[in-house]
Structures are given as C-alpha cells and as structure tokens.
Design a protein around this nucleic acid. Structure first.
Lengths: 364, 364
DNA sequence: ACCGATTATGACATCGGTGTCATGACATCG
DNA sequence: CGATGTCATGACACCGATGTCATAATCGGT
C-alpha cells in the first residue's frame, strides 16, 4: 500500500503539500493540485487512518455494543421485538457523520462486555453506544479516558446519558384515545412488575384516567406476564388474569395488554370464551410489532415503540458529544411513540359483555 | 490516555521492555514483570492499536459488508430468510481469532459499496467478507493492496474465494428422501429462472431421479415465482403452476416448492381445492425458515439453508488466508444443509389424488 | 521601487508502539 | 580459567500522517 511519501515523490512535491491537498486546510496551487490528484489516482493511494489517528488523537471510530445481531432472529421467531431497529437507526444517523462504527455483539452474554470495551479502547473509539433489548437498568464497567458513553433503551446508576422510550406518554396516549372512543372501563394486563416499562405505563394509564376524571379501579389492572421462558406458565397466568378482569362486577369494554404478543394470545382466549372482536370487547397491545399487529384479524391497535428513532437520537447525541464536545443531557432523552389505531378497538362506544364468561377453565 | 512511555517511566524500565511484557516476544525478569504489571494497572494503560498497526502493518481488522442489519426485520416480516444468520456465524468464528470486525451495512444500496470499501482500506483491514442475501452473482469494485476478499452466499467472475450453499445436494437429498418414502411422481415448482439456486436445485432433483431410475418428466417441473415485489402476480403465477401440475395425466403425489414461503402459499391453495395435507398430497419447501416451517400445520418438510455454518466457513477461510497466508481455494466452498423431515410429507407411499381439481379459478 | 500582507510550499518534529542491534550479567563447558 | 551462549534489558530508528514554523513568491498600495 502506497504512502503519502510515494504520492509526494511522484507528484514532485512535499508530503505536507499532499496532506494539505487531502485535508484542504491550506490553499494548494492549481497545477500542484492537478499533479497530486494524478499521482494519487495512479498509485491508488488511500490514507492510513492509523497514522492519522496517532498524530491527531482522533480515531473517527465509534463502538456499538448490542446483542441484537445474534439474538434478533431467535427473538423474532418468538414474537419478540426487533431491537436491531435501534441499530439501524444508529447506522443511518452515523452514515453521514464521517464516523465509522465498530460493532460488537455480546451474544447475550454480559460477561463478555469488559473485553469488548477493552478492544474498543485499543482502537481508541471516541464514543460507545450500548443498546439493550428492552427498557432496563444496566451496570457497565467503568470506561477509562474521555470516551463518551451513550445508553440506548437502558439507563444506569451513574446517570450516563441515555435514550429511552417514553413508556408513560405512550400508554397515556393509548388510554386517552380509548377514552375518546367512549371507553370508561379499561382493563390493563401488564408485563411483569420487574420490567421498568410496567410502572411507567401504569402511571401513563392513570394520567389519562385522571385527566378524564375517571376513578382508578385496581381490579382492572394486574400483572399477567413472566419474563421467564416458561410458555405454559405464561399462558396460565394470562388466562387467570383475563378471567379475573372479565368477571368483575362492572367488566371492562377494552383490554390493554403489556405487549403485542400478549394481545395475540388474548385474541385466542377471548375467542375461546365466545367473544367477538372488537364488537364484544376491544383489545390493544404495545410495541407495534408489525409481524403481529398487521397479521392478526382484526388488526391490532397498539403503541409504537420507536426503536429506529431511539437509535437515531442516541447516535445524534453521541456525535454531538464527540464532535462539538457538548455536554451530556441531565435527564434521559425520552422518545415517544404514537398510538396506532387499527381495527381491534371499536371506533364508537363499546358494547357491554352480555354473556356469562366461563370461569377458570383453561383454553385448549 | 497513558502511553507505553508513561508505563515505562513509572515502572522504571524502558518502553521496549514494557512492549516485551505485553507481547511476550522475549523473556522478561520476574521482578521487572511485576513492576510493569503494577504500573499498567495503576495507569489503566491500554495499548494503542493505531500505533501498533503503523509499525507492524497489521491492523487486526476485518471488514464485513452486508445489508442484513438494515433489511432483516423487513425481510423477516415478509417471510424472507434471515441472512443475518450468516453474520452471526462470522461473529462467532471471529470472536476467538483476535480479529476485530468492522461492520458496514449497505442498506440494500449497492452504490454505497465503493465508499464502504474505501473506509475499510483507510483502516487497513486485512480482509473483507461480503455477504449477499441470496445465492447470486456479484461484481465488486477491485480491492487494492493485498486485502483478502471472501464472498459469502455469492460469487463473482474473478473467481474470488466464495462460500455457497450446496443447492444441488440439498434438493437431491430431499428428492431422495421423497423417493425412499415411496413417491415417484414428484412435482417441483421452482424459484424464478434468474435465481442461481434454481438451475442447481433442478440438477439435484434430476440427480436423485436418475439414481432411482425414475424418468424425468418436464411436465412436473415449472418455475412459479417472481423476484419482483408484486404479490398478486406471484400468487397468480403459483396458482397457475400448481393447477397445471395437478391436472396432468399422471399427477404428482408430492409438491416441492422453491422456498418455504411458496410452500406456505401452496398450503392455502391446496386446501382451497379441498385437498388434505399430507394425506392427499405431500408438500416440501426449501430454506427451513423456522418461523414458517414450525408454525404451519402440518409442520413443513424442507431443506435447511445452512446460513450460520456458511458464515463460520467464510470467516474461517478468511482468517486462514489472513493469518497463515494460505491460498484461496480453487473452487467455491459448498456448504450442504440437511433435509428436515416434518409432517407435511407422508412417511409411507402417497395416495393418489382422486377428486377432480378445479381448473383455473383463482383462490379467494 | 519598497513594504507589509497573502499565497504556496517545504523542513522537521512528533504521535505510540515495535524491529534491530548492542550490551552487561551470569551460567556452562572443555 | 577463558570462550561461548543465554538471559534480560536498553538505545535508536521507523511506520505514515500532520502541526508548527520558516521561507520563497506574488501582489496591491503608496
């Protein structure tokens, strides 16, 4: 591989002049410019970023830590949400920035992270983005030097700059929309209580109720999901929760679920109770996992989890910190996603459930 | 960020001794070793790969060009095969190799490739892996220097080292299995003729027939897929092809499809003709796209497209070329995938279709 | 015609490692 | 005991860019 000296010699100028031509940091004469240009083309010269990095102490590299590449196909097969869309957003935003992305995949094994970070540091990355697969708290090993860190879809105790989905506003927007469509008795079968999203979304749900002056009824809200990989137990838990909220005194006219996959299951369970969607009861999910939401009949109303947008925001945040040295924001950047209205929610006031639901029998 | 000189000074030794400690290329005394170790820990020293690259002319970097990160979610939503599994295989194989992967995503726009390659060259990658989303021919811009290139799931005119799925052996294995299960009239509705896989798989199909002494009947083999994004036209084409092969004199007892998605469609069409699977007719796909094959009822017999294994092989090929300077293989590396037998193929001899199929009516 | 300003260019040191060669302290062997 | 070899270490140059400073050429203004 030829060097800047080879180019200089061939063009009959000094290396520094070639450097000036390449970087445009000082004027270069017309004829010199042409000679250098020709020499570069003839030699197929490509500057060495290693040398440039050494001199300027700026590598132009950004590191990305994620498990999405390894885990996405598996997760999607299970109906999980493709967190790889966060990575896509990052790629898109970084494309024009002149920064090069170094991607490391954890394969879901967090014990690998220190090694990945070390490799990044050897390459003197100017910043690191850590992407989590769901809204969660993380604890990363300290990062030496002045390497910037941005967390996407997660946060830590150290208050590192973070980009998070606005779970509260999402559920609030959904609930407000339901109220606007005439619903007053809104059940909410949430994700597990250990999920960070759960508390926030319930808060959003209550925000919307409060604004509309509808009293909060604890009987309508219950956790109905496990994080564990126990499908049978999950199925049972959801069935029980569903049975419970449907058989209270003043039953709900709409069922909000913690995610689209729960909604998918709920469809089957509701139908096995002889209910028609959305005429007998409306249903809403969360995530806007299009593989589910647009495939179901009726298509599922849900809240979009703005993963791509979060990736864009995270990358933008990092570039501004790296390039302009701008300070990290005090509070996490919250990215909202809109409620997506499809056919699983009746556009007008809801019917009441008239038939007597079966009690406590497990489907199939 | 501290340097090797800082470490040397703190440990009271020369930089070269620190270098020897780090690389183990010459013996270092016990007490010196301890002092250096302590200094490194105290300073949090991490060597600079830029400096190392410059001196040794070896960057330890490998470039990967793919569209999988951007396109996988979309493709999976459409029932396409996750070529990201190739990337996974590469990641897994490279993990222990000490090489660091620089991933670039084309976003499906091949005009970006020259820029990506240029960036790789600036970083002096030792090799580049190009991953295509299906078995195809590609034409890449020349890569200067002695950068090695490995193609995964594709090949070029220049005879660059390539890792390809063994489409011929795959379809042969499937067909042999069908014959072993008593089938003699085996229809094959292939992918479009422009797909590289098509010719190879038909050859494998004929190989198996020839071995079993079954004459090849052209009426049983027909292209039934478009690459275009025209779902309606595809549906029509498949319906027509299916109608044609089912209504010939001596109709098939099993239907092989060009991929799992076609098989998924065929299920619906066969049922709309009143046929029961697999009793009236058996069906087989290709790809082993588990989201389809394991969700369908009956579960779909298919041939596994060994994407992860291909990634592993591609990475292994590149590392051996980069590290040991071993020569590129003359012929493409063919990676076979097994036939996966599920319930869509009757384990015993097949029934004959007795009812008269409807003719030329498009389903629903 | 002279001067300061601007333009165009080059010499040289430097970034942080490592390859090469040299050197001093011991151990081994005939 | 002296020759030879091994071990442990250091001095120095070099990889390929670029920042700093110096210098030569050109120009406009008076």
């Amino acid at each position: 591989m030829s060097t800047i000296y080879d180019v200089a010699k061939r063009a009959g100028v000094s290396p520094k002049t070639v450097s000036r031509f390449l970087n445009g940091d000082a004027p270069v004469g017309r004829s010199t410019r042409d000679k250098v240009e020709r020499a570069i083309a003839e030699l197929g010269y490509v500057p060495s970023s290693a040398a440039r990095t050494m001199r300027s102490n700026r590598s132009g590299l950004v590191g990305l830590i994620t498990g999405a590449i390894t885990l996405t196909p598996r997760r999607m097969a299970l109906g999980g949400l493709p967190d790889i869309e966060i990575v896509q957003g990052i790629l898109r935003e970084l494309e024009e920035s002149g920064l090069t992305l170094l991607i490391s995949d954890t394969g879901g094994k967090s014990e690998r992270i220190p090694n990945l970070i070390r490799t990044f540091q050897e390459h003197r990355v100017e910043g690191i983005i850590f992407v989590a697969d769901h809204h969660m708290k993380v604890t990363l090993p300290g990062i030496a030097g002045d390497t910037k860190l941005v967390l996407a879809n997660c946060f830590d105790d150290a208050g590192s700059p973070a980009v998070l989905p606005n779970d509260r506003s999402g559920q609030k927007a959904l609930t407000e929309g339901l109220i606007a469509r005439g619903h007053r008795r809104i059940a909410y079968l949430t994700l597990g209580p250990e999920m960070k999203a759960t508390r926030l979304r319930v808060a959003g749900y209550r925000d919307a109720l409060a604004i509309a002056g509808i009293p909060f009824d604890p009987a309508l809200v219950t956790a109905a999901n496990l994080s564990a990989d126990d499908h049978l137990a999950e199925e049972q838990l959801l069935w029980d929760a569903l049975d419970r909220v449907l058989t209270i005194e003043d039953p709900p006219t709409v069922l909000c679920l913690g995610n689209d996959r729960m909604a998918l299951r709920a469809y089957g369970m509701l139908r096995s109770r002889g209910l028609t969607l959305p005429d007998d009861i409306s249903v809403a999910g969360y995530d806007d996992h299009t593989l589910i939401t647009e495939t179901l009949y009726p298509q599922l109303t849900t809240v979009k989890l703005p993963y791509a947008a979060m990736g864009v925001r995270a990358a933008r945040l990092l570039t501004s910190m790296v390039r302009d040295g701008s300070a990290a924001p005090e509070a996490p950047v919250l990215v909202g996603g809109p409620a997506v209205w499809r056919d699983s929610v009746r556009p007008g006031p809801a019917n009441r459930i008239t038939e007597l639901p079966m009690r406590g029998r497990n489907p199939a």
